[in-house]
Amino acid sequence: MGFLTPIKANKAYRLQQKGQKAEARKLYEEAFAEGLNDPRYNLAYALMIIREGEYQKAKEFLVKHQKAPGMTPSQRVTLLVDYAACCFRLGDVDKGINTLEQQFQKGETGLLYQTLGYLYVEKYDAANRPDFDQVTEPAAEPEEAAGEEKAEETVSPREAWEAGQKKAEEFIRKSLEYDDEDPICLDNMGQFAYRVLEDKAGAKEWFDKAYALKDSQIDTLYFLSRYDEEAGDREGALEKLEKAAGGRFSPLNYCNRETILKEIERLKGAN
C-alpha cells in the first residue's frame, strides 16, 4: 500500500458524504487495489454499493474483508448486518438469520434487534407460509435395534414453522424490552402483527407508536397509508406515501421507491 493510499480513501469517503458516488467509487476501488484494508472505508464502500443494489458484489467484498485489522466490535456487527441484508436480497433469508443469530449469542445490540427482527418478519410473512396439506412428510426411519438410543422424534414442517414463528415473535417483543422507544423495533412489531399474524387492527397500535417517535420511516408511512386509504382518507394516504418516496431506501425496507411511486400514481388516478 502506497503512502497516498489512505489519503485517497479519505477523499473518497468525503466525496461519498457529499453524494458524489461515482467519483468516490473510483477512488475507493483504486485504494483497495493498492492494498487498503481499513474497516471504516470497507464498510462505507460496502454500504454505497449495497444502496446501488449490487448485493452479490457487496457480499463478496464483505466476506473478503471480514477480518480487517483494527475492526471494533461495533464495526463487526455492522459488517454482519450488511452481509445478512445482502443474503436476504439474494434470496437466502435463512443464511442472513443464522449469521445474526450467531452474533446475537455473543451480545445483544440495538442494531441486531432491529435487523434480525425484520428478517424474522420476512421469513414468516403469511405470504410465505407453505401449504402444509401439500407438504410431503419425510419417510419414517426404521426403528433402531434394541438397546440402541432412540432417535429424536421428527418435527413436522407445520410444527417447525409454528415454532419458528413463536421464536420470532418472542425475539421482537424482547427487542422492545431492550428499548421500548426504538422506532424500528416498534415498526417490526407492527409488521409482524400485520404481515405474519394478519392482525391489522392490532398492528396499527405499533405503527402509531413508531410514527410518534419518528415520522419519516418509510415502511411505517407505507403501512399507515393503508389504514388511511381503507378509512377513505386518500389525501392522508397520499401525504404519507409522498413523504416515504422522499426517504432514503435500504435493502431492509419492505417497499422500494418504485412500489411507493406506483401507489401514489394509483391513488392520484382514483381521485
Results as ranks from 00 to 15, higher is better:
N253G: 01
K167T: 15
A33N: 13
L267G: 03
L36H: 03
D208Y: 10
D125K: 12
K167I: 11
I7W: 15
A12F: 02
G147W: 06
R266Q: 08
E230F: 11
E239G: 12
R158L: 15
P251L: 00
N37C: 12
G91L: 04
F104N: 10
T99Q: 13
E177G: 09
N98F: 11
F88C: 09
L80N: 11
K64I: 11
G19C: 01
E229D: 14
K262V: 04
N188S: 09
F61H: 05
A160Y: 14
E108R: 05
A33F: 10
V135H: 05
L90P: 02
M189K: 02
E181A: 08
A9L: 04
L186R: 07
L241I: 01
K26N: 10
L62F: 02
F32S: 00
I218E: 01
I264A: 02
G96D: 06
L221M: 08
E205F: 15
S225T: 04
H65M: 08
K268S: 07
N253C: 07
Q105R: 13
E177D: 13
A139K: 14
A231W: 14
L47C: 13
A58E: 04
L119A: 05
G164Q: 02
R158C: 08
Y178T: 02
R40S: 11
A237L: 04
N42I: 15
F32D: 01
L176V: 06
Y222S: 05
K200T: 10
A151N: 10
K262Q: 12
S250D: 06
D131A: 10
G117W: 06
A210E: 01
A31W: 04
L4G: 07
F132L: 08
L197Q: 09
E265F: 04
E149G: 04
G110M: 05
G246W: 02
K18A: 15
S216Y: 08
G202A: 09
D215Q: 03
R158H: 12
K262F: 03
A58N: 06
M71K: 10
Q114G: 06
E108M: 08
A193S: 09
E169L: 10
Q134M: 09
S175F: 03
A151V: 12
T259G: 07
A33K: 15
K18E: 15
E143F: 12
F223K: 03
A127Y: 12
Q66G: 12
N256V: 04
G247K: 06
R173D: 12
Y41A: 07
N253P: 01
K123N: 03
G236C: 00
D199L: 05
K8L: 11
Q56N: 09
N271Y: 11
Q20S: 08
I172E: 01
G246C: 03
F171A: 01
I264K: 02
V121L: 10
N37V: 11
N188Q: 09
D215R: 00
N271H: 11
Y113G: 05
P142T: 00
A22N: 13
R266N: 08
T220I: 00
I264T: 04
N98Y: 12
R257M: 12
L252K: 07
E162Q: 15
G236A: 03
K11V: 12
A85I: 02
A85G: 07
G2L: 15
D94Q: 13
G117C: 10
L252C: 07
G107F: 00
Y254I: 11
E258P: 03
F192Y: 06
